[in-house]
Design a protein around this nucleic acid. Structure first.
Lengths: 401, 401
DNA sequence: ACACTTTTGTCAAGTATTCTTCATAAGTAA
DNA sequence: TTACTTATGAAGAATACTTGACAAAAGTGT
């Protein structure tokens, strides 16, 4: 059954020919301008055909002429380039205690955003309304309205069934269980809506921002908790239940006796998360509640805080060594609140990973702090939306309708 | 650069339209017979178009008419089915001390095979010759010759650069480093040649044999050493250096002080592999050299051996718990020599994995001994060859030439 | 200013592919 | 046997793509 369906999807005519206008558009997504002659050459299509496809894309506004190329002795080629401002996408990052909505262009460039403290526990209806209202607030100033939104990407702090966009038993999102987020959004926006958990979204954002060309990457978010987004073979791996990358609850020898809120003992998260560090640094006189407080101490030069962060890096490195052996990635990126003290954290991770792994696995391995940093989630959400919005089948539909 | 190239590949005309004859063939690979009308419906193509494609496939012999379907009141539909005997593939499994070659049909059914003790250390030229000579010995009896070989799949006991089919720094394959296996085979067989390490091949074999429909599976080979083949999102993940799945050298708390031949201490393999168990059970009077000897003891009811195997299962389970958290597979399959004592090994694995993992990850997780067992490698090699042989672009080429 | 080069854009014709239509074949039910 | 149903196969119509050609555009060099 699955087989029949999946293969049907491959050969169904709804899937446009790979060399359609949509396929041509993919070539432009790197932002490089191209001439029609060049396109005809690389695609193998004839010039009239390319010209016709290009006309369609110009019609949609997705491609626009730019300054001509330098002449090579005769008439200079007219150059065409992707027009990322033809439409916009909505990117939303919902955290436990904050929310952020951004409008980006089709390259993922941030055009405007609203960020506010906001509790996810106030429920899905309110959150979705807030996203949509924020969008309607931001768009006019940019010269757009809801009808220009080509896609919506949303990150939430919990597990999500990606195919339906519904949170599944999220521990910190009361009222969200199996709530149909895409339908709620689509009541006011006619565009694809993609929902994923925040860590996956951040992995995508980091990948798009700083690691284009990398096909195997692990993004580790170290904040209150610890999680990872796994990119393998060029795309995000979500696993059978969308639970892939949940490295916070892998057992750590050093943590054997420490209880973890998950019910087990010895989880990585129980000793190396921002929450754990905050607790360890708390004194009755000066209790610390947030991971950011730990970072602040470290930045202020507090030796104890720095030592603890470094040790947390080692602990995380211990678990990442297993990840490296299993996945053999070419990059490990450390993000999340605690990565604001990245130097100490990354140093600890490197120390352990390079010491423990077999040479073949670390030969091409880079371990680095997140480049996208605080913007990883919003960039990732935008990326998810853009990929859906510019998929060839969607372009074909736009031309057909 | 990478981007341009990969997208070019997508839209290049050499890539046949998804609805080509080759695409149609994929529908038949499940073995179910189908009518032309049904095909037209599921593909969205018109009946004459389907008929023409089918004619091409019949021409190639890949599709053949079978008994008509029951009439539904009028003329009964002619049914068509995949003809797995149109051609054959060669599957080879080279181990450290044995070698095996099989001829299978295009469904992976074993038609004939040769198996022999053979040292991989005798070098690549001799091994390749042996494979080819064996093929020429087996094929005539089946009514085929080398020209009917549509693909060759080879498993070797070491890391391989899959894209080129060359072993890379293999520890136990002296003389094979960077040897171009596909070229050597192609000197006598004009067909795609795929080479991969034995564990990956076994994972594919197991997947094809017993887990069709499963997209996320971890196959663990427990023999002299310990390794895993990772299937995620429906295909094998090899990682950045082809080193993915190397779980034998993940650190294990219980093994902290045990030295491992890899140079590190505390590797899983150092305490839970067949080699380690054989050493642990050896006495000066009765030294054990092979994992199979350990299995034999267990089968004979030796309590100490059984206890050790069970503990090895727990140790492996410890590492697999990390794998489960990272990949969230829906199946873990235990294979390799030691899996001949599967009940004890799997019991140990289950004990730890189900105890340690978070519920969401284990919700749909099956842990089971290999079904393909001793045939996993040869089935996997066949599968690799078949997939390459029946790829749409190859069908298109066959029709074009 | 003028000839030359090179690219673009477009048109007409030719080819290949796919769809539509219709006659025919092969069964069932009365 | 006859009427009816359904699948098949072939011919013609429609569509999409390619080829080749050519005029126009926009540069360079004299």
């Amino acid at each position: 059954m699955w087989f029949t369906e999946s293969v049907t999807a491959i050969i169904a005519p709804s899937e446009p020919p790979a060399s359609s206008a949509g396929g041509l558009l993919q070539l432009f997504r790197d932002g490089e301008p191209r001439t029609r002659a060049h396109l005809a050459q690389v695609t193998g299509l004839s010039r009239p055909t390319v010209a016709q496809r290009i006309d369609q894309l110009i019609e949609l506004g997705l491609i626009a002429p730019v300054a001509d190329a330098a002449s090579t002795g005769g008439r200079p080629s007219a150059q065409l380039a992707f027009n990322p401002r033809a439409r916009v996408v909505l990117a939303a990052d919902l955290g436990a205690l904050h929310a952020r909505v951004a409008v980006t262009d089709l390259r993922g460039e941030l055009l405007a955003e609203i960020s506010t403290p906001r509790e996810i526990s106030s429920g899905p209806e309110a959150a979705i309304s807030w996203i949509l209202d924020s969008a309607e607030e931001l768009l006019p100033g940019l010269g757009y309205d809801l009808s220009h939104v080509a896609g919506v990407g949303i990150g939430v702090p919990g597990p999500v069934e990606f195919s339906t966009g519904r949170p599944i038993n999220p521990p910190i999102m009361p009222g969200w269980d199996r709530f149909d987020i895409p339908s709620a959004i689509r009541s006011r926006i006619d565009a694809p809506v993609l929902v994923d958990n925040d860590v996956n979204i951040m992995a995508l954002g980091e990948l798009a921002t700083a690691w284009s060309g990398v096909t195997d990457l692990i993004f580790v978010k170290v904040a209150s908790g610890i999680g990872a987004g796994i990119v393998s073979g060029g795309s995000l791996r979500r696993g059978a239940n969308g639970a892939a990358g949940d490295i916070g609850h892998i057992a750590l020898a050093r943590a054997a006796d420490t209880p973890c809120p998950c019910g087990n003992r010895g989880c990585l998260e129980a000793v190396a998360s921002g929450r754990a560090l905050a607790r360890a640094l708390s004194t009755p006189e000066a209790p610390l509640h947030r991971p950011s407080a730990v970072v602040a101490l470290a930045k202020a030069g507090d030796v104890h805080a720095i030592q603890l962060i470094r040790q947390a890096g080692r602990d995380i490195g211990e678990v990442l060594t297993a990840c490296v052996s299993i996945m053999n990635p070419s990059a490990i990126v450390i993000g999340g609140t605690m990565a604001q003290a990245a130097e100490h954290l990354v140093a600890g991770v490197r120390e352990v990973v390079y010491a423990r792994s077999i040479p073949l696995s670390t030969e091409q391995l880079t371990i680095a702090p997140s480049v996208a940093a605080g913007n990883a989630a919003i960039y990732g959400a935008a990326q998810l939306a853009i990929d859906a919005a510019l998929a060839p089948e969607r372009i074909a539909a736009a031309l057909g309708g």
